[in-house]
């Protein structure tokens, strides 16, 4: 797994945070098991360069944080909509940014062939038909 935009540390952080957000549970595979992060460049390459730089820096820092710190961060993010104070907008933006990346790599049609389990989109029953002439 490699990215032209994100460092190895940043990718490692996404997998760790992804597994905290979406752990293995019943028929749901964990975030890292699915491996959708392999296609993360398809998403990141369209973001403004300054945002990619900031994301890389943030994720690289998070990669070195222990799990209890990441859990605290996720908790702050999840409750940020109801929070006030000067840091609340930052947590809200982090929440949408990180969940956006992680859900986009999980509820996706783009999954590496190495993953042979049931796909998350199939588990939730999402099935769109496109009739193209």
């Amino acid at each position: 797994m490699a990215s032209n935009y994100l460092s190895n540390s940043a990718l490692k952080a996404i997998n760790r945070i992804g597994d905290l957000m979406i752990p293995r549970n019943g028929e749901f595979p964990s975030f890292s098991e699915v491996g959708g992060i392999a296609y993360i460049d398809d998403l990141v390459s369209y973001a403004p360069p300054a945002d990619i730089k900031d994301l890389n820096l943030l994720l690289t820092i998070l990669a070195f944080m222990p799990n209890f710190v990441l859990r605290w961060l996720l908790n702050r993010m999840e409750n940020a909509m109801e929070s006030s104070g000067p840091l609340a907008p930052i947590f809200r933006m982090l929440d949408v940014g990180l969940r956006g990346l992680i859900f986009s790599c999980y509820y996706t049609e783009k999954i590496p062939a190495s993953y042979t389990g049931k796909k998350p989109l199939d588990i939730i029953g999402f099935d769109l038909t496109r009739v193209e002439d």
């Binding site: 398809d42 998403l43 990141v44 390459s45 369209y46 973001a47 956006g100 986009s104 790599c105 509820y107 996706t108 049609e109 783009k110 496109r130």
Partner: peptide, 10 residues
């Protein structure tokens, strides 16, 4: 785009 993620990004 043919996927939701690609739609948002592109």
């Amino acid at each position: 785009p043919r996927t939701e993620a690609d739609t948002s990004a592109r």
